[in-house]
Nucleic acid binder design. Structure first.
Lengths: 167, 167
DNA sequence: TCATTATAGTTAGCTAGCTAACTAAGTCAA
DNA sequence: TTGACTTAGTTAGCTAGCTAACTATAATGA
């Protein structure tokens, strides 16, 4: 997402701001730091998942299924919730089916649709990964009290409001 | 980075917290929101760059070169600063060279190394993209005053401290 | 009722990352 | 001074995303 390691120093930003007067130095450095920390967080979480033989895409599919009352959903719905295309979801489900974590069942009422079912093995996988995952997130956020967490959420909501203006 | 669109509601998190007592609900939701906003931000910036025929990887190479006094560097140094492998940098430089934005020049003192030079066309490209890019970031962050920006940076620094505990 | 349109899922081929293995060139120590 | 190691860059082959095009089925409306 933001691979860049060598974030601009205030010095470098100031130089660029001379050449490009539109630059808002604190805005740029805030955005870059946000992307930097989020990327590192994401990489660290991926590393955690990969210890359990998973990757983010497949992982979220399992969680989305776990949220359902009957542990069942459809590829197109999963794709939308997971934020990937249906084509990508087909690939993710292929992998999960091969590992036995989900099962494809053909629906009777609409023969176009496939029902995706979280298998017992899938539940077991989640039960082994989730505690580890949650424990790591708890540790990572230990340094922030509830007040700071709330501040963060407010600030992120503000940035989120600004994103449409960016497009 | 975080494709997931359907972030867990407090309700869903509470249910998961019953099954997995290690869950720290506010920590999880803060982390997910952080990843969500950062991902949307990153996608929006990518869209801005692609309007100018660029992608993040190549873009950062141009900026890294622009930071240098003589607009020159080496693939391995660029790779390290950009946070990609040397193999990936080879590919990025191939593309930039084809577009005429950089030039490869062989060094005399160490015949293993190649010097990468930002061409005039490269400078022109930056001069056309940077103002647009900076203007967008300014607009996106308009809703945050300096105090909030500083708060954000402090909070991000705290999270950053927690990342090693996550691995 | 049957032609059109919409929907569900898949396939094929593209991309930018990655790792691992390679060549070529420089360094260093026995 | 030569054999082992290190460094710079590239190549080949992998991955998980993507888009576009496809098949099959369902819904709709003239």
């Amino acid at each position: 997402m933001l691979q860049l390691k060598d974030l601009p120093t205030p010095d470098v930003l100031a130089k660029f701001a001379i050449r490009y007067p539109d630059a808002d130095v604190t805005a740029v450095s805030s955005v870059l730091q946000l992307l930097r920390v989020a990327t590192d967080l994401s990489i660290a979480l991926d590393a955690c998942l990969s210890k359990h033989g998973l990757l983010q895409g497949r992982w979220w599919v399992l969680i989305l299924l776990m949220r359902e009352e009957n542990k069942t959903s459809q590829p197109s719905i999963l794709a939308e919730k997971a934020g990937v295309t249906r084509a990508t979801m087909t690939g993710l489900l292929d992998g999960l089916e091969q590992s036995g974590l989900i099962a494809r069942v053909f629906a009777k009422e609409d023969r176009r649709t496939v029902l995706i079912n979280l298998t017992d093995a899938g539940v077991e996988k989640l039960d082994s990964v989730m505690p580890d995952y949650y424990r790591r997130i708890r540790r990572c956020m230990q340094g922030l009290d509830e007040e700071k967490r709330q501040q963060l959420q407010q600030i992120l909501a503000l940035i989120n409001l600004g994103i449409p203006a960016l497009i």
